[in-house]
Design a protein around this nucleic acid. Structure first.
Lengths: 230, 230
DNA sequence: TCACAAACGTTGGCATACCAAATACCAGTC
DNA sequence: GACTGGTATTTGGTATGCCAACGTTTGTGA
């Protein structure tokens, strides 16, 4: 008889809960809309949401509760649920926290990552070394995000990965916008190259410093040019 | 006619929602019980909880949802809600993330904190300089926590404050236990003194490094001596 | 005695109903 | 016409009921 091991079946998707589905849908919608284009605050109507999603209010509310805890929405008692617009000050604070965590991840990566993993870092981002990034900024924006996520994953610290992943959701739009201001893209590439070199040399102090300064540079940039946020 | 401005009324207590009350009660109960003493997993029964708290299941579930997102409990579909016991690996990861954030806070404090605030740091923790801490470890444990929270607040970064505040809830017990192992208390004090001096000298690089190494030292300690966690 | 399955109770997931606070709307008064 | 007070409606907060999945117990046949 043929072994059933031949059958590679996924654990039936375990049809995730409606709450999880509602959460995904809402988070998607919130992060995709550009909140900072809207002049006035966006209010979410629980009943309309549950109607549109085709589920009852209960899972929608539970999803909104999670989103509140993550800082995406705000419950105002008896008034409604509002999508939060972060202030410039809050964005800067998030980037600073991000920098702290990513620089620690870089430090950890110096002792934890294998040579193959570090090499992979360079191989996966060839666009850093050729051509003018200002020509394909969209592509570069994505690669930029991936680069930072890769460093964080090399640190092999789940807590850092989880926290930064949430911070990224908030900051993604701003990060991309900043790339388009001034000469940041070209500058950014140089710094990335230096970071890769430091990691490959397994110089923990240098790697940490370069990652931190790269991040804090973005924070300063937002501090100066981010007035459109408020 | 007498102006109604004479009436100085406070804006009413605004009794928080049942959900918030349930959240507080549950978090209090979870952090106070010592999870790591229990041999087997602790299961929470929604119905019993709502009965004990005197409210319906709805606000209890919403509170539990938040606690799940914070990493305190785990929902198992159709099986129950369980209090999460962190593994040693996870505790170490949390301490590493903590170290990253607190060291960044120290760096920020060097430029942001006033002289008065820094002086306050030294004044508020006189116990660091006199007597043998091993004689009053409970007191010292509290002072220890306050010391680190104070540094973080001096960094004036709300995101760092919020994230670490949550991490602290998870790590508090471990941190206190570690103080009692070996000669860590005395050692810890020396490091605290060095940190205060670096902050007062407004040496950002040194402050960051000392805070980081202090934290990572705890992480290594748990790594080595924390086998009772698993 | 044991394997196994059918029945039952338990428990979380979800839907729905109700309530009270907040707001919008309207009538009456000066 | 502006303002006050009351009423209707909207909307989030909470309670409750139903259901399907899981665990346990009990019953049954070999």
């Amino acid at each position: 008889m043929v072994s059933s091991d031949m059958f590679e079946v996924k654990p039936i998707a375990a049809t995730s809960s409606l709450r999880a589905l509602a959460y995904d849908a809402l988070k998607e919608a919130i992060t995709n809309m550009n909140i900072y284009d809207q002049k006035e605050e966006v209010r979410l109507d629980e009943r309309k949401l549950s109607l549109n999603l085709g589920v009852s209010r209960t899972p929608v509310r539970e999803a909104l509760t999670v989103l509140e805890q993550e800082g995406f929405v705000r419950f105002e008692s008896r008034r409604g649920v509002f999508v939060i617009k972060k202030t410039k000050r809050e964005i800067v604070a998030m980037i600073q926290a991000w920098s702290a965590l990513e620089s620690m991840a870089a430090r950890l990566a110096c002792t934890r990552a294998t040579d193959e993993q570090l090499a992979c870092l360079r191989e996966h981002f060839p666009e850093f070394y050729e051509g003018r990034p200002s020509d394909h900024l969209d592509e570069y924006s994505d690669a930029n995000i991936r680069f930072h996520q890769k460093i964080i994953s090399l640190g092999q610290c789940d807590v850092i990965r989880d926290i930064t992943s949430n911070l990224l959701m908030h900051v993604r739009g701003i990060r991309n916008a900043a790339l388009r201001q001034g000469d940041r893209a070209a500058n950014s590439i140089k710094e990335h190259v230096a970071i890769i070199q430091a990691l490959e040399a397994r110089d923990a102090d240098l790697s940490e410093r370069l990652v931190r300064e790269h991040g804090l540079g973005l924070a300063r940039h937002v501090e100066i040019y981010g007035d459109y946020l408020d």
